[in-house]
């Protein structure tokens, strides 16, 4: 292709570049993000380190770990990221997926709080 034809498309190319930031739809971002979260909670979580976390390590080292009291929620069916009665191979991942769905359900709060479409429209986009 000649240099002239390249130059001929260069002007539209600038506007295409501005538009290209929107080629991935919000819906796609949401679906991909949710799938990543479900895979992380459902599959990758079984590869997580079982070592005590930073606070628990410090509590063990400095001698206040024994002050811990069992949570009142400790007898619940999902306590400790295990599904009571489920096969140990699937229990953790299943608990993670159920937790994701629970958080997602609680997040309907955000839809109740959002600005009304009219308020958004008057503000412009």
């Amino acid at each position: 292709m000649s240099a002239r034809s390249t130059r001929a498309v260069s002007t539209p190319a600038v506007s295409t570049r501005t538009v290209s930031t929107r080629t991935v739809s919000t819906r796609t971002v949401l679906v991909v993000g949710l799938l990543v979260a479900l895979v992380v909670a459902g599959v990758l979580s079984s590869y997580a380190s079982g070592s005590p976390d930073g606070l628990n390590r410090v509590a063990l080292d400095l001698g206040f770990a024994d002050a811990e009291r069992a949570s009142a929620a400790g007898d619940g069916p999902l306590a400790g990221y295990e599904v009571a009665g489920a096969d140990p191979r699937w229990s953790g991942g299943l608990a993670g997926v159920l937790g994701c769905l629970m958080v997602l359900a609680c997040s309907s709060l955000f839809h109740l709080l959002r600005r009304s479409p009219r308020a958004v429209a008057t503000q412009g986009d």
């Binding site: 993000g33 979260a37 992380v40 990758l44 590869y47 997580a48 380190s49 990221y81 993670g96 937790g99």
Partner: peptide
């Protein structure tokens, strides 16, 4: 949801 999932990965 993503933060919940990622917090499972120690």
């Amino acid at each position: 949801t993503f933060v919940f999932a990622t917090q499972m990965i120690n």
